[in-house]
Design a protein around this nucleic acid. Structure first.
Lengths: 118, 118
DNA sequence: TCTCGTTATACCTGCATAGGAATAACGAGA
DNA sequence: TCTCGTTATTCCTATGCAGGTATAACGAGA
């Protein structure tokens, strides 16, 4: 019978994000939002997929675009489909970098949790 | 003339803490608070040193002690000096572990910031 | 010129909670 | 038995802001 694995009583946890001079630019939530926008081509559909209001999604994007010199998401209104939204090249770069960064971070958390069983 | 060092436009940032099953146990602030308690032997003096109210400091300690099975800070009231507070062995262990964990985390942040200059 | 689904923006409201103020409780020492 | 400085706890309030609602603006296609 193998040793029973017990959940550690204490776990290492945390959050990461990317800052600009004016403060937080993107974290986990905003990265996921951009990924949904890539998938749907629509802020509204992305918001629904993430179970947040359109208003909140729009505010996040507006904040991101304001802080970044070059926009991360471009949107147009009217026309076929009512409008659309696309992630820019810089947005793509941020997504890729954050995900790589986050992977290393999650590894650190797991490692530290292992090393800390009283 | 050496190359002028410019601040990176984007920086990796984040926060870490240690969780118990009931949620956050300690983060940077609570660790510093415990270190001040070690230094002064007094919750009130520690609170003053950290520029927070006694009430807030006490609540943090109470929350920590409630979540941890064994208390991290022990306090007594009355007597010489009016009372005192001391950090337990388990508290000391947590301080040491968190600081080591945090050091590795800060290195990760610095490394990622370096690798991310657009 | 009308429809349609989206983007963009203004407005409002409650309600959680951060934080101060006040006070009780305590025990060694004089 | 009184003083003193701390620990422990209750009460209150104000205010910031999360989050919903409503509505204007837009342009391709029919």
């Amino acid at each position: 019978m193998p040793a029973k694995k017990v959940a550690p009583s204490l776990t290492a946890d945390g959050r990461i994000w990317i800052n600009t001079a004016e403060g937080k630019l993107v974290g986990k939530g905003r990265i996921e939002l951009m990924e949904k926008i890539k998938e749907y081509g629509s802020i509204r559909q992305a918001a629904i997929a993430m179970e947040m209001s359109y208003r909140q999604a729009w505010q996040l994007i507006d904040d991101m675009n304001t802080k970044a010199k070059t926009p991360l998401v471009i949107s147009t209104r009217g026309g076929k489909g009512g409008g659309k939204a696309t992630v820019t090249e810089k947005g793509e770069q941020l997504i890729a970098f954050f995900n790589s960064f986050n992977k290393k971070f999650q590894q650190l958390l797991a490692q530290q949790t292992q090393h800390f069983i009283f």
